[in-house]
């Protein structure tokens, strides 16, 4: 199988049952994306496929050979951090760091959805402008769990980048 990940082409020969997550981690040594539950419940495996955030544990790798896949490694490096990665550091949006790549990829996808004007479960008006205050961020990020309780700092990091980008 072949994959386009972070702009580069990769080849791999995994089991037909392999999830996109396991191909990234076990076949391509891209271990930035994490396995937390393997059942689509924790969000640690979140990547961007054609710009949309999805759980990479709940999809077969074989189905994504024609897609543009972006992982945490593609957003930035320790020496050249994406603004959201830098915001997570400055706002201390993590402790153990295991949920962090999934949080960041999910937040990138989420902000794109907000830019498109998508409402959320907590939006008063389905057709109104999107205002990313605390409650909206929490709802839109509810698919990403953090066991170290960094949530308030995660929301601060996201809000900083959202407001900076406006």
């Amino acid at each position: 199988m072949h994959f386009t990940i972070n702009g580069e082409r990769h080849e791999a020969d995994p089991d037909i049952r392999a999830s996109l997550l396991d191909v990234l981690r076990e076949h391509l040594q891209l271990t930035g994306t994490k396995k937390g539950c393997d059942h689509g419940q924790c969000g640690a495996c979140t990547v961007l496929v054609n710009g949309r955030r999805i759980n990479s544990c709940l999809t077969l790798a074989v189905m994504h050979q024609d897609d543009e896949i972006v992982t945490i490694e593609g957003l930035g490096t320790p020496d050249d951090l994406h603004p959201l990665q830098a915001a997570f550091v400055s706002h201390d949006g993590f402790q153990c760091g295991y949920c962090t790549p999934g949080q960041i990829c999910s937040a990138v996808g989420m902000m794109d959805e907000a830019k498109k004007g998508w409402p959320s479960h907590v939006s008063d008006d389905l057709a109104g402008d999107v205002v990313l205050e605390d409650g909206e961020i929490a709802e839109r990020m509810s698919g990403n769990l953090c066991r170290c309780s960094a949530y308030p700092n995660i929301r601060d990091a996201i809000r900083q980048v959202w407001e900076g980008a406006k």
Binding site: G40, G43, T46, R52, R53, I54, N55, L58, T59, S106, G109, M110, E113, P119, S120, H121, L126, R140, M141, S142, G143, N144
Partner: peptide
């Protein structure tokens, strides 16, 4: 059909709704 929009938004997570 706002009832449908609201029902969908009440379900699952952002990642799951995308897929």
């Amino acid at each position: 059909y706002p009832v449908l929009s609201r029902a969908l938004l009440a379900g699952a997570s952002g990642q799951l709704r995308n897929k």
